[in-house]
Design a protein around this nucleic acid. Structure first.
Lengths: 330, 330
DNA sequence: TAATTTTCACGAAACGTTTCATACTGTGAC
DNA sequence: GTCACAGTATGAAACGTTTCGTGAAAATTA
């Protein structure tokens, strides 16, 4: 009755090696009280056999698996990348594993991933998705990021309204007289609307003239150029401040501005939204309203793993901050 | 004998509901041949009970878990982010799950993650790590990215030597007479050396004068400025082409150049390495040697999941390409 | 029709844990 | 010296699958 040579050692093997019972090994592994001589022998046997618990067996018994699924459109857009990173860190601290699910905005994929996750018996799901029709099993804890997924599902976001307002106030403080708000039409979430509303509010309270513009999808450069050209008189823009709904947009519009010989920030100041630093932690791409990604990550995990008997909040708004990144005067 | 109300249905429940045997349900679930009437009844029961397989039980039985761990320093540096994204996609296509492990270059964390992964009985690990002392269980298939991890462990990289050479040739073709190679000292992998060797080789074959410079860690801006200033005569640089070992570096040096009133690409042309597009897929940050990330991803997964009886290559070099990104003349 | 082969659903056993009722050991009291 | 009790190691049962030997029914052949 040789044990198959290359199969991993089990608790049974450890128990035999140490000359103790199965349950004793289990206790040692889980840090439950065990008499000292036993404990020592078991620990020795574990070292000797290089034993590692099989967490599939654990997962089968216990209904907790110490795994969380993260549903996110992709991992290369800086804001998402940053979320992935910080959530991963927070989960690790709590000894949880993370199952990453890039959905590429595809509702079919999102649903598929949710089912995969449930099959895998994750302890919960943290999801950033723009699909309002996702079917989420009632017994799987779900925390939404940035977009409310219906009642009973907590949502963690930045304070987008305050962010918009802050952008308007900053532009006003920096001397702008006439501002524009830009977003791209295809944005799927309703958060841009809060940013817009906040911006409007801020402009009104500071007496800053403003204009709202939703650009069409498609070739962004051409769209930008068309828009900017239609707002120029004698080679000068008719506004001197721009608030873009994302940093990506701010960066692109910055390029277009440069191509049209508009100086940033001398001629026109630009503020983005997200606060993502493209090159590691080295620098902001533009002046921006910073989303508190580490705090969002922490909050999501907290909510997900908190005792389920406690009632969970419906919406958590975390405070944003302004960061200078070269596209404004300060 | 009521079943506990909110516990998930099992195969047994499905079998009872459909009036068939356990094994029959298992076959239906796994797509094995089953007589039509049985099949239909089982499928109905599955729908009715909203049954989902418990993959922990599956993982316990089968030794294959359809899960792969990805070990990577972080997810916010564009090159890494891109890898994560593409590997995730490829794995999904094959119906594999991905366990993401950000290590932050911490050897302790790396080791911890590897053990976590093995406990979790992943089918294999794909890892980008700069720690030469990692202990990897011989029975866990491991594919290294970008850095050889010793014999028996296949490594997938870009063709760094060819990339360096290509950069040199491109600079020569674009009219450069004297070039510099820049890297930061702390780079932990030996791939930069291949890039350097390739660059040297290219310079020699094209008669391009060159200079190698390894910058100290620390405040990058100050380092750059010091270096650049020490190579200027009458406000002009003594070289007209720079090859940076990464795009990050190229971007930073570009900033410094601008601050010193050096025009890019008119005065000095800059080529980076990685080919990462910071804003989604929108644009390259600089002219660059592009690493074939999708192909690297595909190759890693292929190697990992291929039949283990087949022998695996020790090193796979994938071809790089040049991409124009504004910091060269073409 | 009887004998033989093929087909295929059946259900027990096993995977590696955790848990819990049981039994054993040693201590203290009478 | 006996009994009772506390403390603690024991190992069987259970978790939800997959697998595989078994046997019944259907199909084929004589």
């Amino acid at each position: 009755m040789m044990k198959k040579a290359n199969s991993a050692p089990t608790m049974k093997d450890v128990a035999r090696e140490a000359g103790v019972a199965l349950g004793t090994v289990s206790k040692v592994v889980n840090g439950l009280p065990v008499g000292d001589p036993y404990k020592v022998r078991v620990e020795e046997a574990i070292r000797k056999l290089n034993y590692q618990v099989n967490s599939y067996a654990q997962g089968l018994k216990a209904s907790t698996t110490h795994t969380v699924a993260l549903l996110i459109p992709n991992t290369y857009i800086p804001f998402y990348a940053s979320l992935v990173y910080h959530i991963n860190i927070v989960l690790l601290k709590r000894k949880y594993r993370m199952l990453l699910c890039s959905t590429d905005y595809d509702p079919g994929l999102e649903q598929e991933y949710i089912e995969m996750a449930q099959q895998n018996k994750v302890d919960g799901i943290i999801g950033l998705t723009y699909n309002p029709n996702l079917i989420i099993d009632e017994h799987t804890p779900f925390i939404a990021i940035d977009r409310s997924m219906g009642p009973k599902i907590p949502c963690v976001t930045s304070d987008n309204f305050a962010g918009g307002q802050m952008a308007a106030e900053k532009l006003a403080d920096l001397g702008c007289r006439r501002a524009a708000f830009l977003r791209i039409g295809s944005s799927l979430s309703n958060e841009p609307n809060k940013r817009k509303a906040g911006f409007e509010n801020g402009c009104l309270s500071r007496g800053l003239e403003y204009e709202m513009k939703i650009l069409n999808d498609g070739e962004p450069y051409e769209e930008f150029e068309k828009f900017l050209k239609s707002h120029m008189e004698n080679g000068k823009l008719t506004f001197d401040g721009i608030f873009c709904v994302t940093d990506t947009l701010a960066h692109l519009i910055g390029r277009t501005l440069r191509d049209l010989n508009q100086k940033v920030p001398e001629n026109v100041q630009v503020i983005g939204f997200d606060g993502t630093r493209c090159f590691g932690d080295l620098e902001y791409m533009c002046s921006t309203i910073v989303q508190p990604v580490p705090e969002i990550a922490e909050m999501c995990v907290d909510l997900l793993l908190q005792d389920n008997r406690l009632s969970k909040p419906q919406l958590v708004c975390l405070p944003v901050t302004y960061a200078y990144g070269g596209t404004t005067k300060a």
